[in-house]
C-alpha cells in the first residue's frame, strides 16, 4: 500500500513555484475575460435577433414630404390586407426625430431635411410572407419604397459573432496550452530543487505514485487558489466594463442585458485550471521519475 502524504517543503516564501498561484490567477483572469466577451456577444446577438424576429420595416423616401406621406397611407392600407401581417404602424415624425437626434444633435433636424417615412410591420411568426413579391406590389405605388427584414444586417452580425467566438476559443486554447507549459516548467523546477528529498523518498521505498501524489495535490491547490483570485478579478473587471458600456451606449443602441446567469459558467475556470495543473504535474512527475532508477 502506498499512501500519499505531503513530504515536500513549503514553497510559500521561497521556491520554484511560489509565484505559480499568481500566474494561474492571470491565466484564469484572461480566460474568463475571453470567454465572457464571447458569451456577451453571443447573448447580444440572440437578444437583437429575437427582437427583430417578425419585424419588417418599410421605408418611403422622397423630396416632397406631403407626397410621401400620402403614399405611406396608401401603402398602409394595402399592407393591412396582406394575410400574415398582424399590425401596420406609420412611425410618427417625433419618434423618427428622437431616433435621429443622437446622431445629428438636438435641434439640427429642420423641416427642409428630407426625412423618410417609416412603417413598422409585425408579422405572424408561423406565416410565410413573400417579401420580394410584396415589395414589387408596393413599388406599383411608388418606386422609392423599400422593404427591410434586417436579414442582411443579421447575417453580417452573425458572421462577426461567430468569428469572435472562434477567436475567443482559440485564445482560450492558447492560454490553456501556455498554462500547461508553465506547470511543466514549475514542476520540473520544483523537482530539481527538491532532488535530494525525492531521492531519499525513493531510496526509502516511496513509489512514484506517492511522489506524484504530493506534487499533484500541491499544483491542484495552486490552480484552485490562483483560479479563485483570477475569477474574482475578472468579475470585478466585467462589472466595471458593463457599467461603462451601458453609460456609453445609452441612447445610441439598445444594449443587451448583462447575462450574469450565463457568466456563472465562468466558475468552471478555477476548477478547470486546478484539474489541468493537477494532471499536468502528475504526468510530468511520473515521466521524470521514470528516468530515475
Amino acid at each position: 500500500m502506498s499512501m500519499s502524504f505531503d513530504f515536500l517543503p513549503n514553497e510559500k516564501h521561497k521556491g520554484a513555484t511560489k509565484l505559480l498561484p499568481w500566474v494561474m490567477a492571470i491565466m484564469v483572469y484572461l480566460s474568463a475575460l475571453s470567454a465572457a466577451g464571447s458569451l456577451l456577444l453571443h447573448s447580444g446577438f440572440d437578444d437583437w435577433a429575437s427582437s427583430l424576429q417578425g419585424k419588417v420595416t418599410v421605408q418611403i423616401t422622397g423630396e416632397d414630404a406631403a407626397v410621401i406621406k400620402e403614399q405611406a397611407v396608401e401603402i398602409q392600407q394595402l399592407l393591412r390586407r396582406v394575410p400574415g401581417i398582424l399590425s401596420v404602424r406609420i412611425i410618427p415624425d417625433n419618434e423618427i426625430v428622437a431616433l435621429l437626434e443622437p446622431w445629428l444633435g438636438a435641434g439640427n433636424i429642420t423641416d427642409d431635411l428630407p426625412i423618410p417615412v417609416m412603417i413598422d410591420l409585425e408579422t405572424e411568426p408561423d406565416v410565410y410572407i413573400n417579401l420580394d413579391a410584396l415589395e414589387i406590389k408596393l413599388k406599383q405605388i411608388t418606386d422609392t419604397v423599400y422593404l427591410d427584414d434586417h436579414a442582411q444586417w443579421l447575417k453580417h452580425f452573425y458572421n462577426l459573432t461567430y468569428t469572435v467566438e472562434y477567436t475567443a476559443l482559440g485564445i482560450l486554447v492558447m492560454i490553456l496550452m501556455a498554462s500547461i507549459c508553465i506547470v511543466i516548467f514549475g514542476t520540473k523546477s520544483s523537482m530539481s530543487e527538491h532532488k535530494n528529498t525525492i531521492e531519499i523518498m525513493h531510496l526509502m521505498g516511496a513509489q512514484d505514485q506517492m511522489i506524484a501524489g504530493a506534487y499533484q495535490r500541491r499544483f491542484m491547490n495552486y490552480g484552485l487558489k490562483g483560479g479563485a483570485y483570477g475569477l474574482v478579478l475578472s468579475f470585478i473587471t466585467l462589472f466595471g466594463l458593463s457599467k461603462l458600456v451601458q453609460n456609453l451606449a445609452s441612447g445610441l443602441v439598445e444594449m443587451p442585458t448583462f447575462p450574469y446567469l450565463t457568466l456563472s459558467i465562468l466558475f468552471i475556470f478555477p476548477l478547470l485550471f486546478a484539474a489541468l495543473s493537477m494532471l499536468t504535474a502528475r504526468i510530468t512527475v511520473m515521466r521524470e521519475l521514470g528516468r530515475m532508477l
Binding site: M1, S2, M3, F5, F7, P9, N10, N196, T197, E199, I200, M201, L203, M204, G205, A206, M210
Partner: peptide, 29 residues
Amino acid sequence: GVVFQDFRLLDHLSAVENVALPLRIAGGK
C-alpha cells in the same frame, strides 16, 4: 535501511518527522 555518510535528513522536517518517514511511506498513519 540506509545510514548515509552525509545523513541526508530532510531539513524542513523535525527529527520525529524524519524518522517517521519510512513508516509513512509504508502506509502507516
